[in-house]
């Protein structure tokens, strides 16, 4: 099963070659056709999104992303199937939040929630309520938002922060946080709900933390960070100390919410610049800066393209087209980047 280092090198070289070919200079827009392909590949009839990169499991994050894309594509039937499955299979905790992980063999095997999954689901419901003028979606969203606010929003060092899950992210006085769980546009939508002031503070805190959580030569945010009682941030123990698959979403969410300050996008543009915009490594160890041989996926490159534009680095990244067997996460990131770019007016 182990992929040899050499295979990987060949893989990234091939990627570089593909990127150098002309004809793919523009990121693919997210449209009806894109959604149909996405649904064919990842949406099962019962209404769950399959994480093809992870042995076919499903999780609250996937359901949230699927629901967001379904709303964006105007596919209400698919949206209802996704939401129905999510309610039946994941919202079994009794506190209004979703269990984060479901496996075909064992069902819910870990009842802990993942706050970003819950946020994505609630945000998708709010957007659906808007698009299809359906109060029931809004009510459901409000319930999730309320549950999140009461169980996951906590105050630390004068900041309002979001715990990544109900259980296991407090180490004494120190919190373990995930910068990529700051889904800024969702947070803004929650802040606009009645009694949503604390969500506004969460946004403010997110920007402060992203300014503090800059490590290593590229000044990148870690996938998992700590915040102690004095407000000092660190790279969390017990996780791979790296910038990678999680934190790549940081610039995506910032851009999607209309942030344009190059300061917040420069670290990602610097990383891309260092690797010539082609075989960007998927992860960077922090603070050391060792990069993996694994290349960033198409979806990650799509995020970088966005980040580079906002950092003022121009079109430094060429995003190759999605491969026929592109996995769930990469495909999702690519589509989300397109949605974010559309909302910023960068791309059609």
């Amino acid at each position: 099963m182990t992929v040899s280092r050499r295979d990987l090198l060949i893989g990234s070289a091939a990627l570089g070659l593909a990127a150098a070919l002309p004809g793919n200079l523009r990121a693919a827009p997210f449209d009806g056709a894109a959604w149909r392909r996405y649904a064919e590949r990842f949406l099962l009839p019962e209404g769950r999104i399959v994480d093809t990169g992870n042995k076919g499991i499903s999780h609250s994050e996937g359901q949230g992303y699927g629901m967001l894309l379904a709303v964006a594509a105007g596919d209400r039937a698919a949206f209802d199937r996704l939401w129905g499955w999510t309610q039946r299979m994941l919202m079994v905790r009794g506190d209004g939040l979703a269990a984060w992980r479901w496996t075909p063999d064992g069902g819910v095997t870990d009842r802990n929630n993942a706050s970003d999954g819950d946020m994505l689901i609630a945000w998708a419901l709010l957007r659906a309520a808007e698009v299809w003028q359906t109060e029931a979606y809004r009510t459901a969203a409000a319930g999730i938002v309320k549950a999140l606010a009461s169980g996951l929003l906590v105050e630390q060092a004068g900041l309002t922060v979001l715990l990544p899950g109900r259980d296991g992210f407090r180490k004494g006085e120190t919190l373990v946080l995930n910068p990529s769980y700051w889904i800024f546009p969702a947070i803004r939508a929650f802040a606009a709900l009645p009694g949503g002031e604390r969500w506004g503070k969460l946004s403010d805190a997110g920007l402060v933390l992203l300014s503090k959580a800059r490590f290593g030569g590229f000044q990148l945010p870690p996938d998992w960070m700590t915040l102690d009682a004095a407000g000092t941030v660190g790279i969390a123990d017990g996780f791979k100390k790296q910038y990678g698959y999680d934190a790549v979403r940081v610039p995506l969410y910032l851009a999607w919410d209309g942030y344009r300050d190059p300061y917040y996008f420069r670290p990602f543009a610097d990383l891309v610049a260092k690797f010539g915009g082609t075989a960007v490594p998927a992860t960077v160890s922090l603070p050391g800066g060792t990069t993996t041989q694994v290349a960033a996926s198409v979806g990650m490159l799509a995020v970088y393209r966005l980040a580079c534009r906002l950092a003022g680095a121009g079109d430094a990244v060429t995003v190759p087209p999605l491969a026929p067997d592109e996995d769930y996460y990469s495909t999702t990131l690519a589509h989300l980047s397109a949605l974010a770019a559309q909302s910023l007016g960068i791309d059609p």
Binding site: L207, V208, S211, D257, G258, R260, D261, Y264
Partner: peptide
């Protein structure tokens, strides 16, 4: 905090 405030202002 200054960085955050500036980013918010620029938004």
């Amino acid at each position: 905090e200054a960085r955050a405030a500036i980013a918010e202002q620029r938004r």
